[in-house]
Write a protein that binds this DNA or RNA. Structure first.
Lengths: 101, 101
DNA sequence: AAATCATATAGACAACTGTCTATATGTCAT
DNA sequence: ATGACATATAGACAGTTGTCTATATGATTT
């Protein structure tokens, strides 16, 4: 097992805020631009920008610029890695398939 | 899906510190008393006590007093719940068996 | 009951976090 | 080029975090 505690501590820190947890949940359903995410919360645009930067910095979320819009989505590889890490951290009886797409 | 974001944000906060992540990893191997955990880190006893209280408060870690010792262990139910939550949050193709013991 | 040992609590403090307002940057339409 | 729009950055600030030292609590041993 790769025991990169520092890296995963940062990812869990990114998930340790209720707003960011909800954002990740929204992105798991589908790719969204910042303005769509903003509509779902009672925060200002700069605050959302702060949260998105934090999520993107952990690499759990992708940001792709499209004109003046930014489309955010879940990074599938990071997602699988995170699930693997947590399963192994907890020595869970858990099997996670690698996605093919 | 149970969408208890506030609860899980707190659990991820507990896992967002490298020391606590390592403690959880140690406890996944076996139950340990505070003094044994302390040996593995360069922190003072009150600092460890602070971290353990934080972990126990999330219910991810059990604390059982045995005389003046306290034995810490992973709470199996919380562990499974956490893995389920993360899998479902990320819409993972992941199957986690419920343990029978 | 006194001494020792394991753990918890209190208080202090520097560093970090999440939020805001104000402003900047970059893109698109006119 | 100008105006409008989407997003990012800067700076401020109150609240939280992780650490320490000092001390308290509670259990065990002598």
């Amino acid at each position: 097992m790769k025991c990169d505690y520092e890296k995963y501590a940062l990812i869990f820190k990114a998930l340790s805020d209720e707003t960011r947890l909800k954002i990740v949940s929204m992105l798991s359903d589908k790719e969204l631009c910042a303005c769509k995410i903003l509509e779902a919360f009672n925060i200002t645009q700069p605050t959302l920008s702060y949260h998105m930067k934090l999520l993107v910095d952990t690499n759990l979320v992708n940001a792709v610029k499209n004109g003046s819009w930014v489309n955010y989505s879940i990074n599938e590889e990071s997602k699988e890695e995170l699930l693997m890490f947590l399963s192994q951290l907890l020595k869970a009886k858990c099997t996670c398939e690698k996605r093919r797409d």
